[in-house]
Amino acid sequence: MATSNHSSVTDFILEGLTKCPDLQLPLFLLFLGIYVVTVVGNLGMILLIAISSQLHSPMYYFLSQLSFIDLSYSSVITPKMLVNFVSERNIISFPECMTQLYFFLFFFVIAEGYLLTAMAYDRYVAICSPLLYNVVMSHRVCSIMMAVVYSLGLFGATVHTSRISLLSFCGSHTVSHYFCDILPLLTLPCSSTHVNEILLFIIGGVNTLAPTLAILISYAFILASILHIRSTEGRSKAFGTCIHLMAVGIFFESITFMYFKPPSSNTTDQEKVSSVFYTTVILLNPLIYSLRNKDVKSALRRVVVGRQSS
């Protein structure tokens, strides 16, 4: 980071989710409950998949990675937000702000999108080429796919965060948000943000368009295969995997709404409402995927019964 460019900045003031004092405690309790459910649910999913041999398959490997990503970026944002609900001034230091931004971009904005793409490809192979599934989706292939997912997240987050850290913040230090997101930060510098906006458009466009097209193509083939399945049970099982498509649609719709417009066109209320949605509701994705999954329910039942009998 270029210290000389931001030497006048030691901290930022987060505007918070609301300025109404009467809502601080109810919102604190609400988001504390959501965070506890998120941590317990996602951590429980990771442990269940790790200890249950019947869940040692590519689909559940990716699901455990999704739980890890959701748990990680939730822990980057929510604890600071909870502290801000009960503190008089919502202050975050410059290094803390850049760290929060970095891991938010790394885990959520980029890595999760490509992970959802990998999960869509996994379902495509399972439904369209079931006889080749174990060969195509080998442990080595899955590991390489996850390495690519995290590498792309690392690259995008590093580019954006390093560019923002080079800006000169000599004006207002109040971030019109409850965490350090890229668009609210781009409204604060007194130096030009033109390069940052171009990078946001190019990198964000690629990281949204490429996964979206890959997922749509995968599910087009899946739908075509489903239509050739004659048994009602077979169709029901195949269509059950399409719940993934609903979560994907919610994810990319939120990303598109948030980041594909100039910072000057954002309104604080719209941005906060959208952010609350994609930083809380989407965190429950792994749980949603598992609600109708018989293998997960069976594995959980075995773990519970095993502990009771012991």
Rank of each mutant, 00 (worst) to 15 (best):
102 Y>N: 10
103 F>H: 13
103 F>G: 13
106 F>P: 06
106 F>E: 12
106 F>C: 07
109 V>Q: 13
110 I>K: 05
113 G>D: 06
117 T>N: 05
117 T>F: 14
118 A>P: 02
121 Y>E: 07
123 R>Y: 09
125 V>S: 04
126 A>M: 11
127 I>P: 00
128 C>D: 04
130 P>D: 03
130 P>Y: 04
131 L>M: 08
133 Y>H: 14
137 M>L: 15
137 M>C: 12
137 M>F: 08
138 S>G: 11
139 H>I: 11
140 R>Y: 14
140 R>V: 15
141 V>H: 11
142 C>G: 06
144 I>M: 12
144 I>S: 08
144 I>L: 14
146 M>V: 11
147 A>S: 13
147 A>E: 07
147 A>I: 03
149 V>H: 08
151 S>E: 03
151 S>F: 15
153 G>K: 03
153 G>T: 08
154 L>V: 04
158 T>N: 09
159 V>C: 07
163 R>N: 08
165 S>L: 15
165 S>D: 14
167 L>N: 10
167 L>S: 11
167 L>Y: 05
168 S>V: 15
169 F>Y: 14
169 F>T: 02
169 F>L: 09
169 F>P: 01
171 G>Y: 09
172 S>K: 08
172 S>I: 03
172 S>C: 07
172 S>R: 08
176 S>F: 09
179 F>H: 02
181 D>R: 00
182 I>F: 02
184 P>M: 02
184 P>C: 03
184 P>Y: 10
186 L>P: 02
187 T>P: 02
188 L>A: 01
193 T>C: 01
194 H>I: 06
196 N>I: 01
197 E>C: 07
198 I>F: 00
201 F>I: 01
201 F>N: 05
206 V>C: 13
209 L>K: 02
209 L>F: 12
215 I>N: 06
216 L>D: 05
217 I>R: 02
217 I>K: 01
218 S>H: 04
218 S>C: 15
220 A>E: 06
221 F>H: 13
222 I>V: 15
222 I>Y: 04
223 L>Y: 13
223 L>W: 12
224 A>E: 05
231 S>M: 07
